[in-house]
């Protein structure tokens, strides 16, 4: 707390105590009131899986789930989210069991540099939570939320299609 008070004096701004539920855990930090969700996650909580690619909502690399819906953390004021449940890439796998899309991204070679990968997974988890069997159009729309420069998207599309097949098999 001491360091946060010092920081308040130094920055000359009024910090505010902010409490967010992230990956099922309530986290409280004293922060500047205009802090973005991305800064809250990365700088305050050390959850660096959400990537910073532009800070302008253009690249899509910072996508997280807010109450189950994918949103861009760089555009969201964290202070608006005190009553929301936030899930980051760090909260997608259940223990050591990966989400089927995470496993498919690995197996199909959809991961190259990996910088867009967390956001691709976040968007995909939302897609597969809603649609039993998303079609090619829905898959591409979902993937197009995130800019990828390595893969040409083919392997990512493949990973999504494999996941769709697998989930359809698993569900009666």
């Amino acid at each position: 707390m001491d360091s946060e008070i010092k920081r308040t004096l130094r920055d000359g701004g009024a910090v505010r105590l902010l409490s967010l539920e992230v990956n099922g855990q309530r986290q409280q930090r004293a922060v500047m009131p205009d802090i973005t969700l991305l800064d809250f996650l990365r700088e305050e909580l050390g959850l660096t899986g959400s990537k910073r690619g532009c800070d302008l909502g253009e690249c899509g690399c910072c996508a997280v789930l807010v109450d189950g819906r994918p949103m861009l953390a760089c555009l969201l004021p964290a202070a608006d989210l005190e009553h929301s449940a936030i899930t980051t890439i760090e909260g997608i796998a259940e223990g050591t069991t990966l989400h089927p899309l995470q496993q498919a991204m690995i197996d199909e070679g959809a991961v190259q540099c990996g910088y867009c990968t967390p956001a691709m997974v976040i968007n995909g988890v939302h897609l597969f939570a809603g649609e039993l069997r998303p079609d090619a159009e829905a898959i591409r729309t979902c993937i197009s939320a995130t800019s990828c420069r390595c893969t040409g998207y083919n392997r990512i599309v493949q990973a999504f299609e494999r996941t769709a097949e697998r989930l359809a098999e698993d569900r009666p």
């Binding site: 980051t88 890439i89 990966l98 690995i106 197996d107 991961v111 990996g114 990968t117 967390p118």
Partner: peptide, 12 residues
């Protein structure tokens, strides 16, 4: 697959 692919899909 890349040997660090699991780190990349989990944000690690």
């Amino acid at each position: 697959p890349q040997i660090d692919a699991r780190d990349k899909v989990t944000g690690r």
